[in-house]
Design a protein around this nucleic acid. Structure first.
Lengths: 328, 328
DNA sequence: CACGGAGCGTCAAGCGCTTAACGTTCTGTG
DNA sequence: CACAGAACGTTAAGCGCTTGACGCTCCGTG
């Protein structure tokens, strides 16, 4: 191995690779070791190193649905914060499902340096014996003393309700999904509260999944009923639902936004390319990831996090899918 | 630890956890150990175990761009194949970039059980000392004796060219991206060949990235020129480009498909929800991931892979964005 | 009754690394 | 010149697990 090549002991090599050379290794030996490392293409073995140090340099990110472009942004943010020092390991799951605690425990066996949990369910946090440094993302409706970074969903919902009410809409349909996470529940409640304050009537309906297709089906079934009730706008709890509604509305010959306003939540990248472009509540996913990553880094380093619970502002992006209600 | 709790040696616990109890551990002791494990919520430490066994149960997936929904499908497929036995670790990178071999080498230090490389560049494979079990995905334009699973891009390009020629188009613009991977190069060439055979004239243009917005810009700049040249269709090397074109065409008052046909490549999930829905070459990403995962599993188990190089059929999904050329 | 072998457990070495503890050498100072 | 302490190196003890080697008990058979 490197040690014999450089003519020193393994201990010395270790001191060099970990940069603890001050007062322990002579410049001559540092050079020898470094050139031996270069010649051999040596990389410190992560397994041995982690075992000796008691923890690996892996950070685990648990997210409910990695195929969702929204999470891609979160992931990118996390990566931006921690990639220099740690390996990011994703606990990948199927769409909309919270990971099985058993799977996560398997990950925990790798003794990660820290853990990030996106959209954790209370049940999930209970089930799992919570490890040392952990930061929660988008931890709505969950009580935990772990630091967290969240969106101001209430604000987004309020902006959205005000926008619709301002356009003269009096009755809206609310479409969300009955998947596991608390996310949708919180959004529905937030919108309900905001709508109630403005005298906006809400008809709620849940789809089974966040699929574009499923949402389209629901719309196809419900549209007639909604029409009878005087619904002039559909508020979707996630943009993918809105895509389905847009698609099916076109099929049904319903003109958006003239006959029906449609709005989303998340502001996914494609929402500016739909027809018409989608009015949506923008949630700063990348920033959430980055901030959570930074918090975790601080925690790992033993520093107390600056703010335990951070809330990020959400904004409303108004595009072509909303216009004044019929008859205005 | 578990051993004392069950009143046996650590060796016996290890035999139980790894299932090698035949002729080594009595049923009584197995029961004792198992209940001790259950009570303590014990999970075999991955670090110690991997170190002793010489390799971890991690599989690394290297992909050029995880935020792309196309890769999300690949990942899902890989996961479906290997999740039972291994942890999937993604070498996450920035959009369109091949990962830095240095980063990957850091991952290699975890001594993964195997490795999957999606859209590898020749340079990347050279740079990296290739580890034991490795399977390549979408390894176009790369010579390597590692098993691989690929798309039949030529077939897709042919179907597309035939479709357009059949609709009476004589001159098409080809829009792709100049990002690192060989993917786009291969697609362009394949389409060029197919088009030439059918007497279809091609005007090529590259965008800097695969961004929707960048593609829109390119279209805005080029459209006038293309119009002069008699271009009646835009072929995009990836659906995201097509989204940009669709969007900008609407802004410019160009009617798709009557004035201009637009096609994509990849058949991303949103392509059925664009306006009009996008005609696109469908690549079976999930299957590619799954097959590659299975190959890798076989390799890891020491079995020879059944087929070294597999090619998956691609198909053309015709939707509303293509119609007969003007004047037909 | 002696002996072979099956059945069951444990021992101990070792995976590749880190780090406290402990030399050894060298330099400077009283 | 003696000695303190800085500067370097190495030794060795693990980290938590796996596994080949070994030992013991017990049973069946010649």
């Amino acid at each position: 191995m490197v040690a014999v090549r450089a003519g020193v002991s393994a201990a010395t090599v270790s001191l060099v690779t970990s940069g603890k050379t001050a007062g322990r290794v002579s410049v001559g030996n540092i050079a020898k070791v470094e050139s031996a490392i270069a010649e051999l293409g040596y990389v410190v073995d992560g397994l041995g190193s982690s075992l000796a140090k008691g923890r690996s340099d892996i950070v685990i990110l648990v997210a409910p649905d990695v195929s969702n472009p929204f999470y891609a942004n979160v992931i990118a943010g996390v990566r931006a914060a921690i990639a220099k020092d740690f390996q990011l390991l994703l606990s990948v799951t199927d769409a909309g499902q919270t990971p099985d605690p058993k799977d996560v425990r398997r990950l925990l066996a790798l003794r990660p340096a820290g853990m990030l949990v996106d959209a954790p369910s209370a049940h999930f946090l209970d089930e799992l014996r919570v490890p040392d440094p952990m930061v929660l993302l988008d931890a709505v409706g969950v009580v935990s003393d772990a630091p967290s970074v969240n969106f101001d969903v209430a604000q987004g919902a309020r902006l959205l309700a005000e926008h619709l009410a301002g356009l003269g809409h009096r009755k809206v349909a609310y479409l969300d999904s009955s998947t596991g996470t608390e996310t949708f529940q919180v959004r529905r409640e937030a919108f309900g509260v905001a709508a109630a304050k403005l005298g906006l009537a809400v008809v709620a309906k849940s789809s089974v999944t966040i699929d574009v297709g499923k949402a389209a089906q629901v719309f196809a079934q419900e549209w007639e009923g909604w029409q009878h009730k005087g619904v002039t706008a559909v508020v979707c709890a996630t943009d993918t639902h809105a895509y389905g509604v847009l698609q099916e509305a076109r099929v049904a010959g319903v003109c958006v936004p003239d006959q029906l306003a449609v709005t989303g939540f998340d502001d996914l990248p494609y929402s500016e390319s739909t027809n018409p472009p989608l009015t949506s509540v923008h949630l700063p996913a990348f920033d959430m990831g980055r901030l959570a990553g930074e918090q975790l880094l601080a925690l790992i380093a033993g520093r107390e996090p600056t703010q335990t619970h951070q809330t990020l502002e959400s904004t409303l992006v108004v595009r072509g899918s909303t216009s004044p209600a019929r008859g205005m």
